[in-house]
Design a protein around this nucleic acid. Structure first.
Lengths: 236, 236
DNA sequence: TTGATCGATTGGTCAGTCCACATATAATAG
DNA sequence: CTATTATATGTGGACTGACCAATCGATCAA
């Protein structure tokens, strides 16, 4: 090659088609409301001037991110960003054993006590919680066997009153992990009558303005020793 | 159609190729160690007896889940499952303002106080933390301007001592959110000398066995009022 | 030994094709 | 007219075969 270079050689802008498609479709999804339908794969491909394959790969990525739902023969639809967050990032593929359940309980306790603290400090109106609790008491008397997810509903409502969306989201993740893990371990959810009584105790402490006591009660309510224990947990 | 039906018609089991490929590749990834290479797309496709397209879609999903890294012209490699978890599920696209930073601080406080509590209750050896703190003090004296991520390193080490992987993972997520948010808001990280002193205070309380005081110190250390405030935060 | 070259491999992308299923529309039997 | 049945169309799912650009090694020449 000669040393004279009459033309300035500029590297061609290498667009990573897939990334770009993902970026644009992600933006499109954000601009749409939950339930709305994206164009068909063929439409999107044509508008973006890329092949259907690239669109499909991007949609798969969005799907695995939980942002979008792909319905066979029906189209792709935007999901509610507040709907059940993924728990894989937290789970980390750890085996569900007694130790794991203890870790989970500690996590729950960290969050729930914070919720109680925030609710207590802000002196919010607790009437809806009392209403929920009373309804739960009626259900408990009528159908003692039913599950009803009372524990969950109580704490979700409380977290909502705390007014911290990040805390709510985190609670959602931990709760999902919680139910999944207990189901996987095949353990019973516990004494619902005891739970109900403890809920009342926490609420009463909150109403009385005794935040510290409410936090302590919540801590004991959530972070109790796991009944079934494996062999290596003999100590302590 | 006649009412006589000599043949029993059984619906053919329609396997969803993509799901099945994803399932199997996910299992393969779990069985491999971080850094290991999956077979080439063509190999995997042949082994699974599916097309390259299906393999690629599954790999994209695994990639967006952070389980795998696809390197152009080089292959697909298993990622460290402990490496920086995704923060999208927590972030929820919320705007970063003073309120948001307050929420984040509350989340941090929930986790960090729990960490302190666990460390305190287990009476673990705090020598490595002291070592870290001393080193940080030296750095602080030598290069006061440097960042060094001390706050982070201190709390990560403490969380490790607490021995709860779920808590550690959650802390990772919140920390990533924390640094990202403060950077986005364009705020200064704060008085590093003060932080250092507070770290020492927390450690001293832990060493003295005063768990409650350590928790309180950590709470105040993390959940302090945000300096810059927006207009609508006049109240309170 | 050093440097250039060639070829095989790999992920990225594409066009085109076929399939199964769903929905809406049109045709038909009652 | 109604109700049922064909039919047409659109959708995501999957496959094939091909080409590209970058990378890495081996081979070959200076």
């Amino acid at each position: 090659m000669g040393e004279r270079r009459p033309f300035q050689i500029i590297p061609i802008r290498q667009v990573d088609v897939y990334r770009e498609v993902l970026r644009q479709l992600d933006g499109l999804v954000s601009s749409l409301r939950p339930g709305e339908r994206l164009g068909s794969e063929r439409e999107l491909a044509e508008q973006l001037n890329v092949s259907r394959v690239s669109v499909r790969e991007a949609l798969r990525a969005l799907e695995s991110m939980g942002k979008v739902e792909i319905r066979r023969n029906a189209g792709t639809y935007v999901l509610d960003p507040n709907g059940s967050p993924p728990i894989e990032p937290l789970r980390m593929g750890l085996p569900v054993d007694a130790r794991y359940l203890q870790w989970l309980a500690e996590l729950r306790s960290a969050i729930e006590t914070k919720v109680v603290e925030l609710v207590g400090r802000q002196k919010v109106d607790l009437t809806p919680v009392w209403a929920l609790l009373r309804q739960a008491g009626d259900e408990l008397a009528a159908r003692p066997g039913e599950d009803g997810m009372m524990d969950m509903r109580f704490e979700v409502l409380l977290a909502r009153l705390a007014g911290n969306p990040l805390l709510i989201q985190m609670q959602r993740m931990v709760h999902r992990l919680w139910v999944a893990s207990w189901a996987e371990a095949g353990l019973s959810p516990g004494d619902r009558h005891l739970f109900h009584a403890e809920h009342e105790g926490i609420l009463e402490a909150l109403e009385a303005g005794d935040v510290d006591r409410a936090m302590e009660l919540m801590h004991d309510h959530v972070d109790r020793p796991v009944v079934e224990r494996t062999e290596e947990d003999a100590s302590r």
